[in-house]
Amino acid sequence: MPSIHVKRGVFLPLLEGEEELIRKSVSGVLQEYEAAQENLIPILLQVQEMLGYLPGPAMEQIAAALKIPAVDVYGLATFYNQFRLHPPGKHQLKVCMGTACYMVGGRIALECFERRLGIKEGETTPGREFSLERVACVGCCTMAPVVVVDEQVEGKVTPTRVDGILLSFEKPAAPGAEAAGQKGEDAS
């Protein structure tokens, strides 16, 4: 049966032992907070930080603890950009789509990543190596176009820089090589 927006059954089956890990992590987080709905977002953020995403059992456990319908937790998790319902890739690429970035080639950078990785924004490469997202303005407009690579902000991302970023993950580079590469880029 087709669904409206999210295909049903896309929630990946849990790995072996993952359910136990989820339960433990969530219990740990819940202990830090008073069981009140106003703590829901901080709890979800912290659980996601531990697990990388919000698996179904985690949302149900949190809902039960806060005594709210599970669908409310689900609603919240689907409402806010920060929450992900799927396991992320090992490296997360976030292409900024703020005005400044968009105007000077953010879209081009995004398309380059899509082409190079063979995935679309919002997807993870089959081996779960990279996940690609677009993000709203990260506030580094003067460095546009900007890509956030695993929490690190990369400025002036031209198509060639896209290749450089991806290449830097291919073999374990010496620390500092990344920065040196970037500098060389800017100087040209």
């Binding site: 927006h5 949302m59 689900y74």
Partner: peptide, 22 residues
């Protein structure tokens, strides 16, 4: 007081749905 139905997502994708769209 059942809470089976709720809203999820936002904007044009906002829907009335169940937990994890079951």
């Amino acid at each position: 007081k059942v809470g089976a139905l709720g809203f999820s997502r936002r904007g044009i994708k906002r829907v009335v749905t169940t937990f994890q769209d079951v």
